[in-house]
């Protein structure tokens, strides 16, 4: 099997699980501090919320993930009912970019991650 750098996932290239563990605190803090979207992320159980976000970061960086488009739709349907729209989606993508940049992920890799995240828009917004 080829292990050429361009075929490795971003997840592997930036350090796998430990990198996700570091990224999730930064990312969660950003979304929780953003009044536009924080209400979608409020959860009495912060551990559970953090685990969900770690799974999200793992997925968009191409790491081991069992998410399907159907899961994304079902998982976000209640949020869409509460008004989740493109503005919120863009805000999350913005925080994702800022998180990766803060962790010194090289620009081409950041773009690859944002492309994967952007591809989930239709499923997340249930359309």
């Amino acid at each position: 099997m080829s292990t050429a750098a361009q075929e490795k996932s971003v997840y592997e290239q930036i350090g796998g699980e430990p990198a996700m563990a570091a990224a999730v605190d930064v990312f969660y803090r950003k979304v929780l501090s953003d009044d536009r979207i924080s209400h979608f992320f409020e959860d009495v159980d912060m551990e559970r919320q953090s685990a969900k976000q770690k799974a999200f970061l793992t997925m968009v960086t191409g790491g081991p993930s069992n998410y399907t488009g159907k899961d994304m739709r079902a998982g976000h349907a209640p949020l869409v009912k509460r008004g989740l729209n493109d503005v919120h989606f863009d805000a999350v993508v913005e925080h994702l970019r800022a998180t990766l940049e803060e962790l010194n992920v090289p620009a081409p890799l950041v773009e690859r991650v944002l492309a994967i995240a952007g591809g989930a828009r239709a499923d997340v917004l249930n359309r």
Partner: peptide
């Protein structure tokens, strides 16, 4: 405390 920089773990 989390928002002011403490790690969740």
């Amino acid at each position: 405390l989390f928002l002011s920089g403490l790690s969740l773990k």
